[in-house]
Each structure stands twice: as C-alpha cells, then as structure tokens.
Amino acid sequence: MVAAYRFKPVITLLLLALLLVALLLSLALGPVAIPLGDTLRVLLRWFSTADLPTDQVLIIEHIRLPRTLMGILVGATLALTGAAMQGLFRNPLADPGLIGVSSGAAPGAALMIVLGSSLLSALPSFVLPYATVLGAFAGGVITTWLVYRLGQSVQGTSVASMLLAGIAIAAISGAVIGMLSYLADDAMLRTLTFWNMGSLGSANYQRVAVLALCCALVWWRLPRQAKALNALLLGESEARHLGVDVERVKRELVLLTALGVGACVAAAGLIGFVGLVVPHLVRLLLGADHRRVLPVSMLLGASLLLLADVGARLLIAPAELPLGIITALLGAPFFLALLMRAQRRGGV
C-alpha cells in the first residue's frame, strides 16, 4: 500500500481514462451495437456535417445518452455518499443499502408515485417528479438518523446494531411497498417492481435533470466536509478537540447523504453495494484521507456503474437484467469477504 502512495496522480489519471472508456462503451453497446467511430461522430455531430443513420442518432441521443448520464450521476453519488457514511459511522462496512437508508427512501418515493397524484392534486403537475425525490429524501433522512442513533456507542458504531436496524427497516419498507402495490394500477406496479431491483432503464432527460439538480448540491457540499470527516474518524470528542463543530457536520452529512441516496433511489431504484465496494477500493489504492477518497470514489463509482449497466444490457440481450441484481451479485460476495477478514482481525 505504501508503494501505491507514490502513484497517486497516475492512479487518478487511469481512473479518469476508465470513466471515458466506460462512457463510450455505455453509448456504443446494447442490443444494437453501434461502432465506436460512429458513436464518437454522433457525439461530435455539432462540429461536423457528417451523414449518420438516423436510427443510430436516435438510439444514442434519446436512449443511451440520458441513460449514461443517469448512470454517471447515480454511480458517483452512491459512491460519494457511501464514503461519507462510512466516515460518519466510523466504520468501513457502512453502506446506504445495507443499513437501510436506501430501503427507507424507497417507500417514501413509492408513496409519492402511488398516492402523490391524489395527495398533491392541488399542486401543479410539474411538481410531481420532485415530489418523488422529496418523498425518498424524507424517508432517507428519517432512516439515516434512526440508524445513526441506534448504532452509536462509546467505541464508535456497532455494525451489528446497524445491520439489524437495516434488516428491520428493509422489512418495514417491504411491507409498505407491498401494501402500496395493492393500491397501485398496472403502470405504478411496474414502477414499484423495478425499484426493488434497480435499473437505469427508465432514464429520460426530465428525470436526469431532476436527479442532476439534487446530485449537484451533494457533489458541491459533501467534499467540503472531507477534513471534518477525517477528524471524525478519530472519534467525536477528538474531532471536537480539533475545533470541528461536530453536531453541525453530522447534521449536514445526514441531510446530504439522504438527499443523494433519496434522489438516486427515486431515479433508479435500489442499487446496492456501490457505496460499499467503491470507497473500499479507493482506500486500498490511495489511503484513507477523505480529501482523496471522496472525489476519486465519485470517478470510480460512475465508471463501475456504467460498466455494470453495459453488462445488464448485454448479458441476456435483447432482454435486460435489472442493474441492482448485477451490483448485488458482484458486491455481496465482496462484502462477505470484508466481513470475514474483519472477523479474523478480531471483531467488526
């Protein structure tokens, strides 16, 4: 690991290159494969007058580009909030999906989708997409705070309490969504089902815009807390002795995490393990300093989610696997391995 410290700029550049590759693949690959050259020419169409088949232009502009943008936003935000949450909980095994923040956000969003149009009938219709995000955000805030209070102890946070809280919240969330599914019509039902598995398939520019608005706030504010997060890892008292306003930082972290996770859940459903695996890999590569972990996690999170989504499109083409299934298949064994290693070292 010490050797890796010397190659920090190189690693960051390589990850940047990986994101570009993932972006191109995400635009080019799918049930209809478009040659990379043509993909580039579609992207650069504004600068050249080249003649391109209209179907390729349509596929890229209206299906794959919004989907790719959503993948970048969701991947980067989940990885960023995952890293922040691990710092807040002082535990490298915390993940928004595992400890129930995502599953707490889901019923909030589901409630808005199924009942929102009747609850908010007085409001103009353009509010509705935001209402879903707001519902997810509210669910996320409540669960993050709850889990944080439950998991807190003198020695930091107990993974056992956190995971148990996550199980309970997932159960409540499942019950609420199950109940809502009886009230839902067919279209709503489809949306609800797709949530439990997670997918970028519903991407369109309107959703991307709403998501981008929320993510922009999270991307702008969260990395500013990097130094405070470093101090927080020493313990809350120690952070206070270093002059950190711990209560304010915690409040901001909980709100931003809930907003980021909530917006991602509202847009793409439950996509687990990105927030766990990505920051972990980044820490292995670059060390634990949040000033590096936060931005680089965003880079790697976006790339990995795009690649996983390409896999989701190709594995059983022309049908499509839910993205959440792929991230769970890759992430869950990773989590188990981490858990076993932590146990061998004596306690989680």
């Binding site: 690991m1 410290y5 490298p92 470093n230 890892l233 120690e238 060390g287 634990a288």
Partner: peptide
C-alpha cells in the same frame, strides 16, 4: 482512540 481506517 477508535480509529479504524488505514491512514498513514
């Protein structure tokens, strides 16, 4: 201290 992260 309960620091559990791999800082140098």
């Amino acid at each position: 201290s309960s620091l559990a992260f791999a800082f140098s």
